[in-house]
Every structure is written in C-alpha cells, then in structure tokens.
Nucleic acid binder design. Structure first.
Lengths: 228, 228, 228, 228
DNA sequence: GATGAATGAGTATTCATTCAT
DNA sequence: CATGAATGAATACTCATTCAT
C-alpha cells in the first residue's frame, strides 16, 4: 500500500523520508545557537586567540568540521556573536527615544544596564576584551558599520542610537543642574557619570568571587542616588 | 683566520682592560630593558597572543635566540614586565603610609594616577588586557603572590599596600562625610569613586583619537571636585 | 500528516501503474549520466583534486549523498567517466579493421580524430591531465586492463585496438613510401605523424581564445596534405 | 688568552662564533635549491595538488616548518620553481636573435630543444601539467608578466622572445619554401611543425619505459630531416 | 654572548564519506 | 530514492623554543 502511494518521479518524500526544510531549519538554528553559546563562553573566559575551534567544538559536543558547516571561519563566528548580541542589547535601550528622561526613567535606565550586564555577562567580557586590542577594535568598527548598513534607516543605526542616548542623558543632566539653580556649561559631569558606569561594568563583569550580588546592587543604588 | 678578521672589525671599546662584572651586568640590564620595552609595546598594541617573539626581537634589534638568553620563555617575559612595572608603580603610591590623607594629598593622589596612566600607558593597556582573561587573571594573582613572597615583609607586599591605600581612602571619605555632618555607614561612596577612576583609566588608556589631553585633564579636575 | 502533504505536491507521473523496473533503470541511467557529465566538466576545467563532490552535486542539482548512491567514491566516478568515454571513442575507430587504409579512409580517419576532439573536448582535457601524473597514469593502465578484461575477447580490447590501428597506419605509410619508390625501413615517419597528431590534439583541446575553429580546420587539412 | 682577545661590546664574533653572513647565505642557498629540487620532483610526479608539504619536506630531509623559512607558501614555492627554470631555459634560446636561421642553426635549435627536455625533464612534466588547468594557466600568465616586468626591457621579455623565435622560424620556413620555388602564403607548415615538436616533447617527457633514448634520438633526426 | 637555521607540536580549515531520517 | 547534517582524517601554515656554530 505504502508502495502504491509512492508512484512518482520527483517525489521529495520517499522510502525513507528526508527531513523537511522546516525541520532542518530548526535543527540548524538550534545548532547555530549552541555553537555560538559555546564559543562565547570560551572567548569570554580565555580570549579569542587562546580559544581554539577544537575547544569550542568539544564543548558544544560536535566535530570541528561541523562548525564550518555553520560558520565560514573563526572570525566570522566571532563577528556573528557580537553582531547578534549587540543587536539584541540595543533593543533594550531603544525606548526613551522622545529624548526626554524623567527621574524614574533615568533610574530604570541604570537598572536596565545592570540587568543587561548580569544577563549577558559573558558577552560583555568578550566585548571589553575586544575593545582592548587596537587591531580588533578596527574590526568592531567595521562590523558596526555593516550593522548600520543592514539597519538601513540611519536613525536606527547604532551610532545614531548612541548619540541619541548621549543627547538624552546630556539633556537630563542639564535640567538637573538648572533645577538646582546652577549653570550647565559642559557635559563634564555626564562624562564622569559614564566613567563610573564603565568602571562599574568592568568590575561587575570580571568579578569572580571578590564581591557578591548584593554589593553590586547597593552600588547601583548608590550610583542612582549620586546622579539622579 | 676568518675569526681574526672579525675581531678587528667591530670592536668598539677598549682593548686594554677586561670589562668588570659590573660593566657586564649593566650591559645585560640595558638589553633586558630594551627587550622588555619592545615586548611591552607589542603586547599592548596587538595583544599577547598576536605578538610573536620574532616581532619583539626584530623590534629590539636582537636575534630570537638572544631573547631566550634573557628570558626563559615568552610567558616569563610577560610576567617579568608586569612584575617590574607593578613594582615601579606601587612605589609612586608608597608615600602616605601614615594613613592620613589631607585634601591636598587626595588631590595629589588623583593627579598622580593620571600622570602614571599617561607615563605608563602601554603597560596599563597590557594590564587591562590581562585582567580580562580569567585564565590569565589567575596567573597574575599567582604572580602577585610571588612578588609578595619576594618582598618578604608582609607589610611591603602589594596586597598589603592595596589594603593600606583602600584604608587610607576609606578614612578620608569617612572624615569628609563626618565633616558634612553625615553618618558614614559604609564604603559605598568610596567604591563608586573607585569605579569612576577605573572607568576613567580605561577610557584614557585605550583612547586613540576621540578625546584629547585637555578633555582628560578637565575630567581629572572634575573628579577631584566631585570627590574631594 | 506532513507526509501526506508532500505526497500530493510533487507527484508528476501516473498514480495508477507502478513504474516498471525498466523505467526505473532508465531514470537511474539518466541520473548517472547527469552526474558524470557534471563531474567531467569540473574535472576538465579545474582538475580532479580541485573539484569537490559538493561542486559536482550542486551543479548536477542533486545532493552529495545521492552521488554516493550512484558511485562508490570520487575515484570510482573518475574511472567510470574515463571508462565510458574511452569505450565510446574507440567505437568511432572500430571500422577499418580489415587493416587496409585507402587514402580516403586515411583522410576520414584524421577528420574523425578532429571531430572527436571537438565533440569530447572536456574528456580529452581530463584525459591529458590524467596522463601527466605518473601515479594516476598507473591507475589508468590498471583501468585499461580491467576494461579489456571486461571486454573479454582479447581482440576487442583497447590495447589490441591500438595495436591494430598502429599496424594499419604502419601499412599505410609503408605502401605510400613504396609507391614513391622509396624503401620503408622503419615506422619513424609514422611516429612523427603521431607526435603531430598529439601536439595538434593538445593545442586544440586546451586552446581557449588564441586560435579559432577555422585555424584548426586549416591545420587538419595541412596535416592530411603532408601525410596522405 | 682567548678571553683577552674578546674585549669588546658589540663584537659579532664571540665565545662560540655565529656563522658569518657569507656562510649563512651559502647554507641558505643550498637548502633553497634542495627544497626546490625535492618539490619539483614531487610536483612533476604526482601533480601540484596531490603533493603535500610534508612529502616535500620529508624527501628533502627537513622539517615542514623549515620549508616556510625559505618559501612563504606552497604556491610561492611552485612559482619560484617555474620562474627559475623558465629564466634558465629561455637563456638557452636567447642566441639567434639576429632573426636569421641557417640550416645548421635550425638543426642546432631542434637538438637544443631535445637536450633541454632531457635535462629538465621533471620541470617540463610540471609545466605541461600546469598548462592543463585553466585556473593554474592564469597564474602562469601572471607569473610570466611579472617576470617580464622584472626583465624591464620589453625586448628581453619572454613573450617578446617567443614572438622573436616564432618570427625567426617563420622566416626560415618562408625561405625554404621560396628556395623550392613554391609560394609561401601562410605559417601553416610552421604550425604543423610546432604541433610535432609539442607532441614529441609530450611523449618524451612523460615516457616512462615504453621507448628508449635511441628511439627519441632517431625521432629528432627524422624531424630535422622532414622540416629542415 | 649572539645568531638564525631547524624543529615539532599546534591551529584553522577542507572535504570525501557516512548515516539517520 | 533522497537529503544534508555530521564526522574525522588530512593539509597548509605558524610560532615558541632549541641548538650548533
């Protein structure tokens, strides 16, 4: 009976049916994620150069060769990871684009940074590392440009978003100053605030056992207290 | 025969007195420094892994083989650089060990940090890079311990110094708070201050063309203004 | 369920009668040919080693796996191609086996060579390439032997045919000499003729843009003129 | 005593004297040759792609790594070999550049071709192979151009030399025709001659055991007899 | 003390082949 | 019969380190 049904020349399903493209796509996507996850962990922990494809593959439970079925090269894998995470992260901060930040929103913004650092710890470890090698830094800049090109609309671009955020914060600090009856002559205080955030991020992301979560939460609240 | 010719060609110094061991030692020390300097520059710029012994040697104007006459391995070279610089840098901050910091001394302390970052920019680039790889981080910790062991007297050790500095700053922040009539219940503000310094250092050290020296000087003054 | 959908989509032929084994065999044979054609083109153009199974399969519009359903290995595929083409080509020259070559037949023979080179250009490209690697040459010799074994009757074998052709040509050259009143003491002139044919074949088969078809036709006629 | 003589800071000769640059250059040149020789043999025998660096190195009695001390890549090694041999071979044919070929010179020319084929058999095996892969053919053309660029004077270039030889031969065939009272309307006979030489070269160079040296010498004389 | 040729273990990458579906 | 994910052995190439001179 089964045989009867199968009378066809170009029948895609057959004796032993190959997976459908939907099934395959799911499998592929899952494996891609798995590889990227494995790679990110190693990159974050040991650095890009010290991480070998073998390590990544072994950790992901696949063969070296298979990795190249999903990513054309180690560098492409790195870029893909960074691209993906950056895309995702920027979406978190894509909200207050009217340019006006209330105190509550500012507080939310800081908390959001903390949450993001916590959730994407490995990625930020990698990102910090990348930022520290001038050669790699250049590649990141290229990458950022290509992301922007993909994003097409210039006001959707990453640098545009960065500028937007900077502008929004600048306005916030200005208003704060004016409210206190002081004159706002420059973004100096904002810059200091950014240093603080950077330093906090650096400490949090690379903290191993020294400090606990409570310590960092208190820090976040203190930062909010100081700069709100 | 061929030896003889050579002997007459490139002899620079006296033919009369054999060099003393002190002279030899000086020459050795100079070459060591040269190699370390060359290595530091490459490590800082391209990262430890991307830097080859060949590059270092060529840049230092010596042969690869000779490098191994001065340092047993690439890793040992790295450690030696870090060891040396840390030693040197800690000496800058080895002053106010009475534990009492005046406002002037605090200001001086910040300026001193800035000066040190400027003077040892390459080293800090390397140090930051090293700090970001957990594997390497562990090695650094080992190294620090061995430095302390070498230093022998525990109150001369680096961690001891770090603690000393932290304590001194903690006292300073406490006094400041009390002077303002507020209660000092924790080192939270100090920690925020440390984040700020870290973030500033990170920005300064890896800044390439975005900001100029004036910008950073203003930042330093603002930090002093905020935390003095 | 999902199977069901597929079954209704791409069914081309009759739903009623199961295909006969002859039909199936025809389909198989057509696919075999397709793969061999695709492979030959790639082998000829890029060489055996530079050609991947993936390329062949993609070009033939099938999956890699399916290729292995038709040929047990890349090498077997190569052998099969050579075997097939050699078989086919030798049939072209399987006529004048009475051993007597008239002038008209000689002329036809040369033209036939030219036609064959033109028609099977890719194959000759491949064959020349194969002939130039001693390791591969050995395999070809093995292959030839196995063809002969398959052919069973020794006077049907390729080497036998080659010898036959050589003998026929030798007789032809001998008669020509004698007709001119000269003594024929060796096959030297025949050998030179063979060099000429080889050189012509080589030039024709690997010519890309330098010479046009007219040039080669003139060459053919000149060769006939010189050796008839 | 020995110590006494060695009083110098930047003395190149020392305790255990390193080799002089002349010595080193000799060693290097010898090893370069050795590697190229080993590579040529393998390339000729098994083809470029089927030859591995490991094979070459093992055959040359050195480590894989060392090969890269002399040649930056497998491809560069190939190019270097071809470049070197082509340079050398063209010098053999760099004589009759007045454009006039006597019968004796023509004979010498043919003999010279035979001698060259004999002496550089492996190289010609490689060259024929290279000519048969369109991809590689392109590289060869590039290479030829670069050789010409190096040669600087355009009339020293290889294609120029090729044209020169062709022209000289064309004139020779023309005179021959005219001497016989026939009209020379095209280079057809010359082209046939070139096919013959090609076919002879091909046969000679890839002959393994079928024919002996005597056979080929007779062939050469016959070619001379036919075309002189 | 100084050189650089030499080594070999290690790295990213490729590709014929297998196999579950 | 048909697919393409998966494997693993092989390959070109790199680089820290050694060692004869």
């Amino acid at each position: 009976m089964y045989h009867k049904i199968q009378k066809t020349i170009i029948c895609i399903t057959d004796y032993m049916t190959p997976r459908t493209s939907i099934q395959l796509e799911k499998i592929r996507e899952a494996k891609r994620s798995l590889i990227m996850q494995s790679a990110l962990e190693h990159f974050a922990k040991n650095g890009y150069y010290a991480t070998t494809i073998s390590h990544i593959a072994k950790h992901a439970g696949i063969s070296k060769g298979l990795m190249y079925n999903y990513f054309p090269s180690k560098e492409a894998l790195l870029k893909e990871i960074i691209y993906n995470y950056i895309q995702e992260i920027y979406q978190y901060f894509d909200i207050n684009r009217d340019g006006y930040l209330t105190e509550e929103e500012f507080e939310y913004f800081i908390h959001q940074i903390y949450r993001t650092l916590k959730e994407k710890k490995s990625f930020f470890q990698l990102l910090f590392q990348m930022m520290m090698q001038s050669e790699v830094r250049l590649k990141l800049i290229e990458l950022q440009k290509s992301i922007e090109t993909l994003a097409a609309r210039s006001d959707d671009s990453i640098t545009a978003l960065e500028k937007q955020i900077y502008k929004t914060l600048s306005d916030y600090f200005k208003r704060k100053k004016e409210k206190a009856g002081q004159e706002y002559d420059s973004d100096l205080e904002l810059n200091i605030f950014i240093y603080t955030i950077k330093g906090f991020a650096l400490t949090y992301v690379f903290n191993e056992t020294e400090f606990d979560e409570e310590y960092f939460e208190k820090s976040v609240n203190k930062i909010i207290e100081l700069y709100k």
